[in-house]
């Protein structure tokens, strides 16, 4: 009998890129459902639209690069990028902006660098930042959460806003949009209001904005799923959230009326989503354990610093991109001690 020969190991491989990505998508579900609940159909429409655009762009580029299309599409990495992008942008963003952002993320940020595994920057964040700096008004026009929204749009209305740009009769942009809690807090603090004053508005919940903080909770649940399934390790999220908390609490203790409580920063904006789903993108993150702690803490620190002193209300995307740049260097200097070696990776 003749047998084929291959090299060891000969075991059934328990992991695959597809299953890793699939678990990320599954873990995103609670948060996205919650977002749709609070912010309407726009979230779902954008998720579908972004996925279709991402897959189309990926297929087109693979074809141009002469690479096999099917296995690359099957790994679902483009879908993950698309979903992360879709939930990061405002629900009523015009369709062509969405298309531009996703296409830029997939074609430029991902494939021009060599495709999956080779991109130094998180593609979804690159696309997001492109739109944020190009269309700051549209990118910060969020809807109020449904509990505060007196005029929620139905499915057809949402579609026509996204694709036609036409608001239903009798509504104006000012009437239906609202700044995010982070934005609001920042603006009001800049007007020298005190936090106790600001928090009297019905906009606020226990820690962050009403509705928003619940979305954060559901992303936290998704993160726990990823940790449990060992798709991600605890190092990056814990370090990032820890750094945000430490910074926020330090300044909060210094002046309670000028710096919101630490958990406000955790449950506002993209902190939880970023900690579990964005900063943990393996391709662009640090890979050593000690490196991941530094990388995560760096993102947390930068997030707080940019939020507090920078020009944008939220900063997770910038912080992630900045730390992406530092990841190779962090990896180099944080090599673990190899078994049987006395110290470092170089003796």
């Amino acid at each position: 009998m003749q047998f084929a020969t291959i090299t060891s190991p000969h075991s059934d491989r328990p992991n695959s890129v597809t299953s890793t990505m699939l678990w990320v998508i599954i873990a995103l579900l609670p948060g996205t459902v919650a977002m749709s609940w609070y912010f309407g159909w726009g979230i779902l429409i954008h998720m579908v639209l972004a996925s279709v655009v991402a897959l189309a762009c990926e297929a087109a580029v693979l074809k141009l690069r002469g690479r096999p299309v099917r296995p690359a599409l099957g790994d679902l990495s483009a879908v993950v990028t698309a979903l992360l992008f879709a939930i990061a942008v405002p629900p009523l963003l015009p369709w062509w902006m969405m298309l531009l952002g996703v296409a830029f993320a997939i074609i430029v940020a991902k494939h021009l660098y060599g495709g999956i595994g080779y991109n130094p920057f998180n593609p979804a964040m690159v696309g997001y930042v492109l739109l944020l700096v190009s269309y700051p008004v549209e990118m910060t026009s969020w809807l109020p959460p449904s509990i505060l929204n007196e005029t929620p749009l139905d499915f057809i209305q949402t579609l026509s806003v996204i694709f036609g740009g036409a608001l239903p009769a009798g509504l104006t942009w000012d009437a239906i949009t609202m700044a995010t809690p982070l934005d609001q807090m920042r603006t009001l603090l800049n007007q020298n209001m005190m936090i106790s004053e600001i928090r009297q508005s019905p906009l606020w919940g226990d820690f962050g904005g009403r509705g928003w903080e619940w979305v954060g909770n559901w992303y936290l649940l998704g993160g726990v799923i990823l940790l449990y399934k060992r798709v991600i390790s605890w190092h990056i999220p814990v370090a990032m959230l820890g750094a945000v908390l430490v910074f926020a609490m330090f300044f909060h203790v210094l002046d309670q009326e000028a710096h919101p409580f630490g958990l406000f920063h955790i449950f506002s904006g993209a902190t939880l989503l970023g900690a579990f789903f964005i900063a943990t993108d393996p391709v662009s993150a640090a890979t050593t354990k000690r490196g991941q702690l530094i990388y995560g803490a760096g993102i947390g620190a930068l997030t707080y610093i940019i939020r507090r002193w920078g020009g944008y209300p939220d900063a997770v995307a910038f912080a992630v991109l900045l730390m992406n740049m530092a990841a190779p260097m962090i990896d180099y200097y944080t090599q673990p001690r190899v078994f049987g070696h006395r110290s470092g990776g170089d003796d």
Partner: peptide, 9 residues
């Protein structure tokens, strides 16, 4: 077929 390393660690 092996695919590209995603540096998952």
């Amino acid at each position: 077929r092996a695919s590209a390393c995603i540096r998952c660690g």
